[in-house]
Nucleic acid binder design. Structure first.
Lengths: 153, 153
DNA sequence: AATTGTTGATACTGGTCAATGTCAACTATT
DNA sequence: AATAGTTGACATTGACCAGTATCAACAATT
């Protein structure tokens, strides 16, 4: 099911930053700003050049919808993202959780932190399920629904 | 444990709106605005007069911190509040969830909706644990930590 | 060689919105 | 009767910020 979604919207990073900006009708600068603010993790070549996939573009459209239509600022989005229960998604051990700022903190999404000595260390955040929880606009709550079953009656 | 917290900060509604405004150094108008925007549910007498408790004041201080320091707007707070997994807190049956806008929607906290034919119908939102999940500023994530245990290793 | 990319800094603009003020008509408290 | 509360509407203000623009120095792509 996740596999299907992944193939429906291509995750292959193929657009340069200027091409991506043209497709989205925004400036190159704005794309870099989103990245600096922690909302976006584009693919990077060895040369450090950014490349964007269709999935990235979808995420950016979502960011812009929230910013422009819902009138929620970048700081607000970051707060929303920091509510994503990464510990439940990547199944990090309770021992690691205790000292992890993604678990104990409240202001930054996990992928903005330097993760050392835990299950995330070897992971690439761009490809992580936690980061993708914001792939489309309602997905954070959908992820909560998945994780919190509550009464099964 | 919850009992202790409840008695530490009084939930007894004792301040009139003008007294509450004076204590918080804001205007009466602002208090009514927060209420209209769905961030606050003051106690109401039969005569419709609002009364605020110390717990209410604490919540309002939290709202103002998020608004003024974190620079998240009212709409953003509402989005945060609508992420509270009420279905896991009040243990509403799966059958009810399916047709409940608090579960299916993404933009309004449950207490802003008219709830009919479900477990919430008889409840007073002001006293509900869901509404209290925003009693202090970090409590939404803390509630998620409670509900999502993840790996128990 | 020319284009397109990278970094970081700095400054400006236009629009949005939290908050306040004020008006009017009414009701409850004291 | 006077005070303090309620509702709704409408206008204003001041601050913030998303987005753009433009520097400069440099590296990679084509």
């Amino acid at each position: 099911m996740n596999k299907i979604e992944l193939t429906n919207v291509s995750s292959i990073p193929s657009y340069t930053i200027s091409n991506a900006a043209r497709l989205l009708h925004i400036s190159v600068h704005t794309l870099r700003m989103y990245e600096r603010e922690g909302l976006l993790i584009p693919f990077k070549k060895e040369s450090n050049q950014r490349l964007y996939s269709d999935k990235d573009l979808e995420r950016i459209r979502c960011i812009r919808k929230v910013l422009n239509e819902d009138k929620i600022g970048i700081e607000g989005i970051r707060k929303l993202l920091s509510l994503i229960p990464c510990w439940g998604i990547v199944k990090c051990p309770a021992k690691e959780r205790k000292v992890c700022k993604a678990y104990t903190g409240y202001s930054k999404p996990c992928w903005m932190l330097k993760h050392k000595n835990n299950v995330c260390e070897s992971k690439n955040c761009r490809d992580c399920d936690v980061y993708s929880s914001f792939g489309n606009c309602e997905s954070i709550k959908d992820k909560l629904k998945e994780l919190i079953v509550g009464s099964s009656k």
